[in-house]
Simulated scan of single mutants.
Amino acid sequence: MGAVIGLDHVQLAMPEGGEDAARAFYRDALGLAEVPKPSHLAARGGCWFEGGGAHIHLGVERDFRPARKAHPALLVDDLGALVAQLEEADVVFTEGKPLDGYARGDVADPFGNRIELMERLR
């Protein structure tokens, strides 16, 4: 019998023509590396990012609506430092409700998609 062994990537939607805004947020503000899309998929637009084991794919959706409830939760090593970095890029951080063992909160990507940031507390 087969079994789930991990998570390969999270797909988020974005509006057509949003690649530069996606790069400014995911690459420049969050610090993820952009990875090339396979050529047969690149023609559709969008972009892919990865870092620290997280893989986020942004695909163009014609009737785009941001995901405000469904979201990826990214583990970070220093939430305070990342929040300061994001604030320098004019990204608003909203502190999350307490969750045992974590400091956490949310940001929105340039398209309104919710991104949760979580730091494991020692």
Rank of each mutant, 00 (worst) to 15 (best):
E19G: 12
H57A: 12
A24M: 06
I56E: 02
L75Y: 13
G80N: 12
E19C: 10
K37S: 10
A29G: 03
G59V: 05
F25Q: 03
E61A: 11
L30C: 04
A33L: 06
M14G: 05
A29E: 02
A73E: 10
A42V: 12
H71T: 02
A54S: 12
R62E: 14
R44S: 12
A54I: 11
L79N: 06
D20H: 04
R27A: 11
V76N: 05
H40M: 15
G31V: 03
E16L: 13
D78G: 01
A22M: 08
A13N: 14
A70H: 11
G52I: 01
F49E: 01
P66V: 09
G18V: 09
S39T: 14
W48S: 04
G46A: 07
I56K: 00
Y26V: 10
P15K: 07
G17I: 05
P38H: 09
H40L: 15
D63A: 15
A33F: 00
L41Y: 13
A33N: 07
A70M: 08
R68I: 08
H55E: 07
A70Y: 12
G46C: 08
A70T: 13
H40I: 15
E19A: 12
P15M: 06
D28G: 07
S39V: 14
D78H: 07
G52T: 05
G53Q: 08
D63H: 15
P36E: 13
E50G: 07
L32H: 02
R65S: 10
E61K: 15
E16D: 14
L75P: 00
A81I: 05
Y26T: 09
D77M: 10
R27H: 09
F64R: 09
D78Y: 01
V35M: 14
P66R: 11
F49N: 02
G45V: 08
E50D: 08
V35T: 15
R23P: 01
G51P: 04
E61F: 10
P36K: 09
A29D: 00
Y26M: 09
A67K: 04
G59W: 00
S39L: 14
G31N: 04
D63N: 15
F64L: 09
L58E: 03
G59M: 10
H71V: 03
G45S: 06
P15W: 13
L58H: 01
L30D: 00
L41M: 15
P15H: 07
H40W: 14
W48P: 02
C47G: 13
L30F: 03
F49C: 02
